Amino acid sequence: MAAAIVLLATGCASVGAAPVGEGALSTPAAVATLRSEGHEDPQPGTTQPFDRSAHSTTNPASIWVVINKTHPIDAAYRPAISLVRGYQVAVPAAGPLTRLLADSDGLGLGFKIASAYRSYGYQASVYGNIVAASGQSAADRVSARPGHSEHQTGLAADLVTPASPGCDFEACFARTPGGRWLARNAWRYGFVVRYQPGSTAVTGYSPEPWHLRYVGRPLAAELRRTDTDTLEQFFAINGGDYP
């Protein structure tokens, strides 16, 4: 969430290469790298229906869990953790995030993790600081109340580009080379840009083009294929504002 300006850890190395445009993955070398990692484009003509019951949407340990303002997570929940560039990430997302960062480094995008796993208590602190600074109504548009944050699952990560920080945690991040690349390619690694323009009424949050959520490549590819912006819409799960 936007409150990720408060970092959980340090130790991320910046990349000095100049940013590249969203078309970088059309180069043979980049495509070959993705395919060697098992990130081929979906095959056209596939007729087997997608199994929407393959993973739970309510178990916080599931990669398909839906956490929003109407579906909270237990305060005591803590995922199995692995470290990615010094940040705590749920184990299922760690390898894919590592590959995404490595491939984007090779393209000169220079992403760094700004926030990943956040405990219930840490989220309470982040949210409370925003409420104190901006009021609860404003805070609820950009930050989750404790117990309602995807970051507590460890499956979400916020990325920034320190070499060009002007749009970090701002809507204009979507128009930067890094933001455009994530919008076009995050699905290849099993991630979705969780909070999209035009979906605030569904997700409850303003657009966040820097906020990635791991769902696994099959679901990420299916969301892309069906042009579905949110998990709530795909699984017919209530979203919106707090009750």
Rank of each mutant, 00 (worst) to 15 (best):
A4N: 10
A4Q: 09
A4V: 06
L7R: 07
L8I: 08
C12V: 14
S14A: 13
G16E: 14
A17I: 05
P19A: 01
V20W: 08
G21L: 02
G23Y: 03
S26F: 08
V31Y: 12
E37I: 08
P44K: 05
Q48T: 15
P49S: 12
F50T: 12
R52F: 03
H55C: 03
T57S: 04
A61Q: 11
T70M: 01
H71P: 04
A75C: 13
A76W: 15
Y77E: 06
P79R: 02
L83T: 15
V91I: 12
G95M: 10
T98L: 13
D105A: 14
L107Y: 02
L107Q: 11
S119F: 03
Y120Q: 11
Y122I: 08
Y127M: 02
G128N: 03
G135S: 03
Q136K: 13
A139H: 02
D140S: 02
P146R: 01
S149E: 08
S149T: 10
T153S: 10
L155H: 02
L159C: 00
V160F: 00
V160I: 08
T161Y: 11
T161Q: 14
A163N: 11
S164H: 15
P165N: 11
D168F: 09
D168E: 13
F169P: 01
E170A: 13
E170D: 14
C172Y: 10
F173Q: 07
R175P: 00
P177V: 04
G179N: 02
R180D: 00
Q196Y: 09
S199D: 12
S199H: 04
V202F: 00
Y205M: 10
P207K: 06
L212W: 01
L212G: 00
V215D: 00
L219Y: 10
E222S: 01
L223P: 03
L223R: 06
L223A: 03
R224G: 02
Q233W: 07
F235I: 07
G240C: 04
